[in-house]
């Protein structure tokens, strides 16, 4: 059964980028709970401590280049978490990077569903929602 709303976690050190993602998600009308984190380490703590709802996966939009803990460091720590937690999330990597190494590196992490270019657009988000509905 397709749930009516989806929960989101946005991880980006730029407040403006968090704001943009938040707006675009709300505009879809399918937004459930949306949480923004400017620090990936804080986001990881949050994920560790809150069990995701059993009926639908939470979508994570993750930036690559961030201070303190970057996107790749986050995903490595995330994949170490218990399988039932990891299984509760769909992670999408989001970046302004046009670096080939970054793009290739994304493929090495099985928990990353897809790489998305910044800025996030409503059509890109619509495609994600479409995919999750199936």
């Amino acid at each position: 059964m397709t749930p009516d709303t989806l929960n989101f976690i946005i991880i980006d050190d730029s407040k403006l980028d968090c704001f943009i993602a938040d707006k675009i998600i709300r505009n879809t009308g399918k937004a459930g709970d949306i949480k923004s984190f400017t620090n990936a380490a804080t986001a990881l703590e949050h994920i560790k401590e809150t069990p995701p709802p059993a009926d639908a996966k939470t979508t994570v939009l993750l930036d690559i280049q961030m201070p303190v803990m970057n996107g790749f460091e986050f995903i490595e720590a995330f994949e170490q978490l218990p399988a039932e937690i990891v299984g509760g999330y769909n992670v999408y990597m989001l970046s302004s990077s046009i670096n080939e190494n970054d793009l290739n590196r994304v493929k090495n992490y099985h928990s990353i569903k897809q790489f998305l270019n910044k800025p996030l657009t409503s059509s890109a988000l619509a495609a994600i929602l479409e995919e999750q509905a199936q």
Binding site: S14, L16, K23, S96, K118, P119, T121
Partner: peptide, 9 residues
Amino acid sequence: LSILGAIDI
């Protein structure tokens, strides 16, 4: 890109 995104919204 942030600004571009913001303009779009």
